[in-house]
């Protein structure tokens, strides 16, 4: 599925602000893997997701999806394989456009867009059905502007948009971090449901260790641009937050209490 080989990235190379963001990342995801990613601030979690999505070019290494080398493809071309949900609920949707228009844009992810009508009448039933499954009542407001929705609703809509046309890989970059706890829980439940139902290969960055343990079949921990811990299957299921904290201290050789990572228990 996704194979990352020795990917490196340094920001502001050769200046006083030089920051080694990724120091030789190797990662292989099997089809249907749901991997949660944890780590402190500046560990390289978001950078890794951005490199996969093509937001910045990588310095060296190789990123492949289903054997296709996408390392040097621009962001908009990689979109044909990848669905994304950002941390900021404002970033994933177009506020000034209708809910159904947003969905119509998402349905055409990665396809060439021509001069046929941007939203076809026969798509609307599909949108209504999909919105109904979100359980937020949005199916009755399909022609409302997205700007009228709450942050949680927008994030749920973005999640739906990212998966409307099945992506080979779903990237979730702390997509519940900007939401209040109750809404965050709801969006996470939705995430779990959608990922399971559609059997999506997923990478989810989170700050919440409990979520990282509960969701998915595999967990990786990052620190200073490296993957320092990778656990899957039964071993992952039996993990506790304290185990993760201990692992972090072991692997990083740092006192967790001094780190600003603030992994929420």
């Amino acid at each position: 599925m996704l194979t990352i080989t020795n990917v490196r990235k340094t920001f502001n190379k050769g200046t006083v602000n030089e920051k080694k963001a990724l120091c030789g990342i190797n990662l292989h995801l099997n089809p249907g893997d749901f991997v949660t990613v944890i780590g402190g601030n500046g560990a390289g979690k978001s950078t890794m997701l951005n490199m996969i999505a093509g937001v910045y070019p990588i310095d060296s290494g190789k990123i492949e999806i289903d054997g296709v080398n996408i390392s040097r493809e621009p962001e908009y071309k990689r979109a044909q394989y990848i669905g994304r949900v950002f941390q900021d609920p404002m970033r994933g949707t177009a506020a000034g456009m209708e809910i159904q228009e947003n969905l119509a844009l998402a349905l055409r992810r990665g396809q060439s867009r021509g001069l046929s009508w941007g939203i076809k009448a026969n798509e609307k039933d599909f949108y209504r059905e999909s919105l109904t499954r979100l359980g937020l009542g949005l199916q009755t407001r399909m022609s409302s502007k997205v700007g009228l929705l709450s942050g949680g609703q927008r994030q749920a809509l973005t999640l739906l948009m990212a998966t409307l046309e099945k992506p080979k890989l779903l990237l979730l970059d702390e997509h519940t971090a900007a939401l209040d706890p109750k809404t965050a829980k709801k969006v996470l439940e939705l995430t779990d449901e959608i990922v399971k139902e559609r059997e999506l290969t997923t990478l989810m960055v989170t700050h919440n260790m409990k979520d990282a343990i509960q969701l998915g079949n595999r967990l990786i921990m990052m620190h200073e641009g490296r993957i320092i811990y990778d656990v899957a299957g039964e071993e992952k299921k039996s993990l506790h937050v304290d185990d993760l904290l201990k692992k972090f201290e072991e692997a990083s050789g740092e006192e967790f209490a001094n780190d600003r990572m603030m992994l929420a228990k």
Binding site: A53, Y76, Q80, T93, A94, R109, G110, M161
Partner: peptide, 10 residues
């Protein structure tokens, strides 16, 4: 409206 969004949609 939103460059990030539409680029992520290809």
């Amino acid at each position: 409206y939103n460059e990030d969004m539409i680029r992520a949609l290809g």
